[in-house]
Amino acid sequence: MRLLAALLGAITILVTPAPAGAAPASRTVELVRTVGVDITVPASVNLGAGIAGGTLTRQLGTVEVSDFRGPVNPNIWVATVSATIFITGAGGAQRTIDNSRISYWSGPATRSTGGGTLVPGQVTSAQAVTLGVARQSFRKTGGNGNNTVAWVPTVRVAIPTGIVAGSYRGTITHSVA
Protein backbone atom coordinates (compact mmCIF):
# COMPACT_ATOMS: atom_id res chain seq x y z
CA MET A 1 0.00 0.00 0.00
CA ARG A 2 1.32 3.46 -0.82
CA LEU A 3 -0.07 6.41 1.09
CA LEU A 4 -0.42 9.87 -0.37
CA ALA A 5 -1.50 12.71 1.87
CA ALA A 6 -3.19 16.03 1.47
CA LEU A 7 -2.41 18.68 4.08
CA LEU A 8 -5.37 20.92 4.78
CA GLY A 9 -4.96 24.52 5.89
CA ALA A 10 -7.21 27.57 6.02
CA ILE A 11 -9.73 25.33 4.44
CA THR A 12 -6.96 25.02 1.89
CA ILE A 13 -5.77 21.60 0.81
CA LEU A 14 -2.21 20.93 -0.23
CA VAL A 15 -1.85 17.42 -1.62
CA THR A 16 1.64 16.07 -1.09
CA PRO A 17 2.73 12.59 -2.13
CA ALA A 18 4.64 10.66 0.49
CA PRO A 19 7.88 8.97 -0.62
CA ALA A 20 7.34 5.43 -1.91
CA GLY A 21 6.73 3.08 0.99
CA ALA A 22 6.81 5.91 3.57
CA ALA A 23 4.11 7.32 5.81
CA PRO A 24 3.37 11.03 6.21
CA ALA A 25 5.77 12.50 8.79
CA SER A 26 2.99 13.17 11.29
CA ARG A 27 1.98 9.52 11.61
CA THR A 28 3.50 6.31 12.86
CA VAL A 29 2.35 3.68 10.38
CA GLU A 30 3.94 0.52 9.03
CA LEU A 31 3.22 0.19 5.34
CA VAL A 32 3.02 -2.90 3.18
CA ARG A 33 3.39 -2.03 -0.48
CA THR A 34 1.61 -3.96 -3.23
CA VAL A 35 4.39 -4.18 -5.81
CA GLY A 36 3.26 -2.92 -9.20
CA VAL A 37 0.30 -0.86 -7.92
CA ASP A 38 0.75 2.87 -7.37
CA ILE A 39 -1.46 5.88 -6.60
CA THR A 40 -0.85 9.56 -7.36
CA VAL A 41 -2.63 12.73 -6.29
CA PRO A 42 -2.32 16.41 -7.31
CA ALA A 43 0.62 18.49 -6.07
CA SER A 44 -1.73 21.03 -4.45
CA VAL A 45 -5.39 22.00 -4.20
CA ASN A 46 -6.93 25.10 -2.61
CA LEU A 47 -10.40 24.68 -1.14
CA GLY A 48 -10.75 28.39 -0.44
CA ALA A 49 -12.61 29.89 2.52
CA GLY A 50 -16.04 29.27 3.97
CA ILE A 51 -18.41 30.82 6.48
CA ALA A 52 -19.61 29.50 9.83
CA GLY A 53 -22.64 27.26 9.38
CA GLY A 54 -22.03 26.96 5.63
CA THR A 55 -20.54 24.28 3.44
CA LEU A 56 -17.48 24.36 1.28
CA THR A 57 -17.44 22.02 -1.73
CA ARG A 58 -14.46 21.62 -4.06
CA GLN A 59 -12.87 19.02 -6.31
CA LEU A 60 -9.49 17.70 -5.17
CA GLY A 61 -8.05 17.18 -8.66
CA THR A 62 -7.17 13.93 -10.42
CA VAL A 63 -6.35 10.82 -8.39
CA GLU A 64 -4.89 7.96 -10.45
CA VAL A 65 -4.14 4.31 -9.73
CA SER A 66 -1.67 2.53 -12.01
CA ASP A 67 -1.45 -1.26 -11.94
CA PHE A 68 1.61 -2.64 -13.73
CA ARG A 69 1.42 -6.23 -12.51
CA GLY A 70 0.82 -7.58 -16.01
CA PRO A 71 -1.03 -10.87 -16.38
CA VAL A 72 -1.31 -11.58 -12.65
CA ASN A 73 -4.72 -13.12 -12.08
CA PRO A 74 -6.82 -12.01 -10.32
CA ASN A 75 -5.55 -8.48 -10.76
CA ILE A 76 -7.67 -6.59 -8.21
CA TRP A 77 -7.09 -3.65 -5.87
CA VAL A 78 -9.01 -1.30 -3.56
CA ALA A 79 -8.28 2.42 -3.13
CA THR A 80 -9.36 4.03 0.15
CA VAL A 81 -9.57 7.58 1.48
CA SER A 82 -9.58 8.94 5.03
CA ALA A 83 -9.16 12.26 6.81
CA THR A 84 -7.93 13.56 10.14
CA ILE A 85 -9.71 16.30 12.01
CA PHE A 86 -8.92 19.86 10.87
CA ILE A 87 -7.17 21.95 13.54
CA THR A 88 -6.41 25.65 14.01
CA GLY A 89 -4.45 27.29 16.83
CA ALA A 90 -2.12 25.66 19.31
CA GLY A 91 -2.21 24.39 22.86
CA GLY A 92 -5.28 25.48 24.83
CA ALA A 93 -6.38 27.77 21.98
CA GLN A 94 -6.74 24.87 19.55
CA ARG A 95 -10.08 24.50 17.71
CA THR A 96 -11.21 21.70 15.39
CA ILE A 97 -13.53 20.64 12.61
CA ASP A 98 -14.28 16.95 13.14
CA ASN A 99 -13.54 14.62 10.21
CA SER A 100 -17.14 13.38 10.38
CA ARG A 101 -18.04 16.81 8.92
CA ILE A 102 -15.94 16.09 5.82
CA SER A 103 -17.79 14.30 3.01
CA TYR A 104 -16.24 12.71 -0.08
CA TRP A 105 -17.40 11.24 -3.34
CA SER A 106 -15.14 9.78 -6.00
CA GLY A 107 -17.25 10.53 -9.05
CA PRO A 108 -16.97 8.26 -12.12
CA ALA A 109 -13.75 7.28 -13.86
CA THR A 110 -12.53 10.20 -15.96
CA ARG A 111 -9.90 8.13 -17.78
CA SER A 112 -8.90 4.47 -17.90
CA THR A 113 -6.59 2.24 -19.90
CA GLY A 114 -6.33 -1.52 -20.15
CA GLY A 115 -9.11 -3.91 -19.25
CA GLY A 116 -10.84 -4.90 -16.08
CA THR A 117 -13.91 -3.98 -14.11
CA LEU A 118 -13.49 -0.57 -12.45
CA VAL A 119 -15.99 0.45 -9.77
CA PRO A 120 -16.21 3.97 -8.29
CA GLY A 121 -16.92 4.20 -4.57
CA GLN A 122 -19.50 7.00 -4.83
CA VAL A 123 -20.55 8.24 -8.27
CA THR A 124 -22.67 11.23 -7.21
CA SER A 125 -22.96 13.71 -4.33
CA ALA A 126 -26.07 11.81 -3.18
CA GLN A 127 -23.74 8.88 -2.39
CA ALA A 128 -21.16 10.99 -0.49
CA VAL A 129 -19.61 9.39 2.60
CA THR A 130 -18.12 11.09 5.63
CA LEU A 131 -14.42 10.60 6.29
CA GLY A 132 -14.64 9.94 10.03
CA VAL A 133 -13.41 6.44 9.07
CA ALA A 134 -11.54 5.11 6.02
CA ARG A 135 -13.81 4.67 3.00
CA GLN A 136 -13.48 2.94 -0.34
CA SER A 137 -12.87 5.47 -3.11
CA PHE A 138 -12.42 3.16 -6.14
CA ARG A 139 -11.73 -0.51 -6.84
CA LYS A 140 -10.85 -2.93 -9.56
CA THR A 141 -12.82 -6.15 -9.22
CA GLY A 142 -11.56 -8.23 -12.12
CA GLY A 143 -9.39 -8.52 -15.18
CA ASN A 144 -5.68 -8.66 -15.67
CA GLY A 145 -2.98 -6.81 -17.56
CA ASN A 146 -1.58 -3.33 -17.18
CA ASN A 147 -4.26 -0.80 -16.23
CA THR A 148 -4.78 2.76 -15.04
CA VAL A 149 -7.86 4.58 -13.82
CA ALA A 150 -8.28 8.23 -12.89
CA TRP A 151 -11.07 10.06 -11.10
CA VAL A 152 -11.65 13.58 -9.76
CA PRO A 153 -13.08 13.32 -6.24
CA THR A 154 -15.05 16.05 -4.52
CA VAL A 155 -14.82 17.00 -0.86
CA ARG A 156 -17.48 18.87 1.10
CA VAL A 157 -16.76 20.45 4.50
CA ALA A 158 -19.76 21.22 6.71
CA ILE A 159 -18.41 24.20 8.65
CA PRO A 160 -19.79 24.29 12.20
CA THR A 161 -21.77 27.31 13.42
CA GLY A 162 -19.89 29.36 16.00
CA ILE A 163 -16.54 28.19 14.65
CA VAL A 164 -13.46 30.25 15.44
CA ALA A 165 -11.98 31.90 12.36
CA GLY A 166 -8.56 30.60 11.39
CA SER A 167 -6.47 28.40 9.16
CA TYR A 168 -7.57 24.81 9.75
CA ARG A 169 -5.08 22.04 8.95
CA GLY A 170 -5.58 18.30 8.60
CA THR A 171 -4.74 15.38 6.34
CA ILE A 172 -6.71 13.60 3.64
CA THR A 173 -5.04 10.33 2.70
CA HIS A 174 -5.57 8.15 -0.38
CA SER A 175 -4.09 4.65 -0.40
CA VAL A 176 -4.28 1.56 -2.59
CA ALA A 177 -3.67 -2.13 -1.90
Rank of each mutant, 00 (worst) to 15 (best):
Thr62Ile: 13
Thr62Met: 10
Thr62Leu: 08
Val63Asp: 00
Val63Ala: 06
Val63Gly: 01
Glu64His: 05
Val65Glu: 06
Ser66Arg: 13
Ser66Asn: 09
Ser66Ala: 10
Asp67Ala: 08
Asp67Gly: 07
Asp67Tyr: 07
Phe68Tyr: 06
Phe68Lys: 12
Gly70Arg: 11
Gly70Met: 09
Pro71Leu: 15
Pro71Ile: 13
Pro71Ala: 15
Pro71Lys: 02
Val72Ile: 11
Asn73Ser: 15
Asn73Glu: 07
Asn73Asp: 14
Pro74Gly: 09
Pro74Gln: 13
Pro74Arg: 12
Asn75Val: 09
Asn75Asp: 14
Ile76Ser: 08
Ile76Arg: 14
Trp77Leu: 05
Trp77Asn: 11
Trp77Lys: 02
Trp77Thr: 01
Thr80Ile: 05
Thr80Ser: 14
Val81Lys: 10
Ser82Ile: 15
Ser82Ala: 15
Ala83Glu: 06
Thr84Leu: 04
Ile87Met: 05
Thr88Pro: 08
Thr88Ser: 15
Thr88Cys: 07
Gly89Thr: 00
Gly89Met: 06
Gly89Asp: 02
Ala90Val: 12
Ala90Ile: 05
Gly91Thr: 02
Gly91Val: 00
Gly91Ser: 01
Gly92Trp: 03
Gly92Met: 00
Gly92His: 00
Ala93Asp: 07
Ala93Phe: 01
Ala93Cys: 00
Ala93Thr: 04
Gln94Ser: 08
Arg95Val: 02
Arg95Ile: 04
Ile97Tyr: 08
Asp98Cys: 02
Asn99Ala: 13
Asn99Trp: 02
Asn99Pro: 06
Ser100Glu: 10
Arg101Thr: 13
Arg101Val: 01
Ser103Met: 09
Tyr104Thr: 06
Trp105Pro: 03
Ser106Thr: 14
Ser106Cys: 14
Gly107Lys: 11
Pro108Glu: 06
Pro108His: 01
Ala109Gly: 08
